[in-house]
């Protein structure tokens, strides 16, 4: 196995607020290979978006990022000064965002904004940058790209704007593309197009993709491996097919069971009882225990360690004992 393009080792992100220290991400480790898509899933507030931002060194104040390393092509980003980090952002690691409607500067044309990404990192003439930007717009299949080039963002639909953001992110063929819920704000039909576009560009360039999402349907179709987060921690990490076939963590099982099924009619969806605990008031032991159907007294004592399991890892002391419920198997077949 070659060295992973991106390797995160024991990442910790905390916010020092007046109410106390909020630990948004704890001891998170993962890696992504060239040409691979790693999906990070979890509920709102589980720390997945802040993890995405930390990969580019964009965690806002008063957030603090600590940890052993975030290694991008061998370089530890946590140890780099801001000026050097800036030169990697957009060039070796790029990001696309959840809200295409607000992700573009309203007073610059989309062409200028793509050109800016190129001109900021490479010593090329404006004319050359213009040609490349135009080619990028065509490549993300924006119809009538020549005319769109000098349009302002407000004249484009949400899907078109997301294509522009993708073109911008791919302008310098980065090694890693971080996509933070890239389709959440879009229509279902547009969602599929955008995700297919990302897949296609990934195959062409060998880019590694970190796909942040809460949509298990997206995970199943567009990722190779999955990392499930709960309350700031990794609870399960598996190959996508394995995860859907045999989810090990009770939380993962709950997520999979809660998916609407085609042909499921109007029946009430399964749900996970309770809510995510406040990051200010974490229970001792497993953070999921208060909502867990199979919790036992030991779960409330210590945070369960990540244990190797079926070519992946799971953090649940009962993971080995519990049998996989039938609905999950059906979910996979469906």
């Amino acid at each position: 196995m070659s060295d992973p393009v991106l390797a995160v080792e024991r990442l910790n992100i905390s916010f020092h607020t007046r109410r106390g220290v909020l630990r948004a991400v704890r001891d998170l480790s993962f890696h992504v290979e060239r040409g691979e898509t790693l999906a990070i899933v979890g509920e709102s507030g589980c720390g997945k978006s802040i993890t995405a931002l930390s990969l580019l060194g964009l965690v806002p104040e008063p957030g603090r990022v600590e940890g052993d390393a975030v290694r991008l092509e061998g370089r530890n980003l946590l140890a780099l000064p801001e000026a050097k980090l800036r030169r990697l952002r957009g060039a070796r690691i790029a990001m696309i965002f959840q809200e295409p409607m607000t992700a573009l500067n309203p007073v610059l044309t989309v062409g200028e904004q793509i050109m800016e990404a190129i001109l900021e990192h490479e010593k090329v003439s404006r004319a050359a940058a213009r040609d490349r930007a135009l080619a990028l717009l065509e490549r993300v299949r924006i119809p009538d790209a020549k005319r769109r080039f000098s349009d302002y963002p407000h004249r484009l639909s949400g899907g078109m704007r997301q294509r522009v953001v993708i073109a911008m992110a791919l302008a310098l063929s980065p090694a890693v593309l971080v996509a933070d819920e890239p389709t959440t704000a879009l229509d279902v039909t547009i969602q599929a197009q955008i995700l297919e576009l990302i897949d296609e560009l990934k195959r062409e360039n060998g880019t590694a993709v970190v796909l942040i999402t809460h949509d298990l349907g997206v995970v199943a179709e567009h990722s190779d491996r999955v990392l499930v987060m709960y309350a700031g921690r990794k609870v399960e990490a598996r190959a996508t097919a394995d995860l859907f076939a045999r989810p090990l963590h009770p939380y993962t099982r709950g997520l999979i069971a809660a998916r609407p099924q085609p042909g499921g009619g109007r029946a009430r969806l399964a749900e996970i009882p309770g809510t995510v605990p406040s990051l200010f008031a974490m229970p001792a032991g497993c953070a999921f225990a208060p909502r867990c159907a199979v919790a036992e007294p030991a779960c409330g004592v210590a945070v369960p360690p990540l244990m190797p399991a079926e070519d992946g890892a799971v953090a649940c002391i009962r993971a080995g004992e519990i049998h996989v419920p039938e609905p999950a198997r059906e979910a996979l077949r469906a």
């Binding site: 580019l56 800036r86 952002r89 965002f97 992700a103 573009l104 500067n105 309203p106 953001v165 911008m168």
Partner: peptide, 17 residues
């Protein structure tokens, strides 16, 4: 505080720019 500023940062644009 707006999103497009974050996008510009993610592109690696210089702070002064």
């Amino acid at each position: 505080g707006q999103d497009f500023v974050r996008t510009a940062r993610a592109k690696g644009v210089r702070p002064r720019r």
